[in-house]
Amino acid sequence: MTRFVLRRLAVAVPLLLIVAAISFFLVQLVPGSPAAAILGNTATQEQVDTLEQSLGLDQPVLSQFGQWLGHALQGNLGASYTTGQSVSDALAQSVAPTLSLAILSTLLTLVVGLVLGMAAAVRGGRTDRLVQWTGSLGMAIPNFWLAALLIFVFAIKLSLFPAIGYAELGTDGIGPWISHLVLPIIALSAVNLGQIAFQARAAFTDALSRDYVRTLHATGVPRRRVLYKHVLRNASVPVVQVTGLTFIFTLGGVVVLELIFTLPGMGNLMLRSVQNHDFSVVQGGVLYFSLVVVLVNLVIDVATAALDPRVRVR
């Protein structure tokens, strides 16, 4: 198992380097100078040159990359072109709402999706149809529209949850923290829930038809134990793997929902920086988001390996 984790880490490092390179060179594609883009149309050439010099943009591209990467490895992603704030600090301050939302929603969809998929596959008939219809409906509702609906019903009409904003877990306590996250989590989970429930249904249907189910029955193992110990474990392997694949889309949803619920997260930071042509923050943001994806996938790899010994040798 330790060797497995080390091997996965060894793959993750070059992956991150490549993503870092992509996020750096992406900015190099800007037609004209970033400095000109920041200063706008009214700037004189002289102002542009001065800004370029102060940002280090007059250096050759490769040496810029080397410098940026070297600093990035030390946790320094440079300063924001517009506010002058350290990019690492800005990202670190906004990471908590983003991760809370993404991780809680992923766990929720995984657990509820497994339960729904299992019910659909095992009970069949009406339960199956019900799960399929609700899942299909969930997948068809755009998360931003669902978010607006939830705000209207639960915040404006019923006043059960705050419509917008965020409370720190550390300073404000768990109650306010979670109550600010309930609506965003539901809005974010609806689409993925359908996806995961369908995957779970397929995985359970497959596991239920495997020969070992018959072997276990034939040795006298009761039905419930076959289902909850053996079928559940085998079926969760592909479902957990798919959760990893859909996580990148969950992060996309987080960006959208942070805007609606005005959560002070990385998504809103990115959107602001995009509007302000703040390239250094955008660069750092892409790197941060990719880091989250790689780490989550690492956790998922380890989880599947813990569930299924065949994964460990791959």
């Binding site: 992509i22 990148i248 992060l251 960006v255 892409v286 994806v293 790689v294």
Partner: peptide, 15 residues
């Protein structure tokens, strides 16, 4: 598969 699509497209939109 490790690239968060929306975030990268955001970056592309600014670029």
């Amino acid at each position: 598969f490790a690239i968060p699509a929306l975030v990268v497209v955001l970056a592309v939109s600014v670029v």
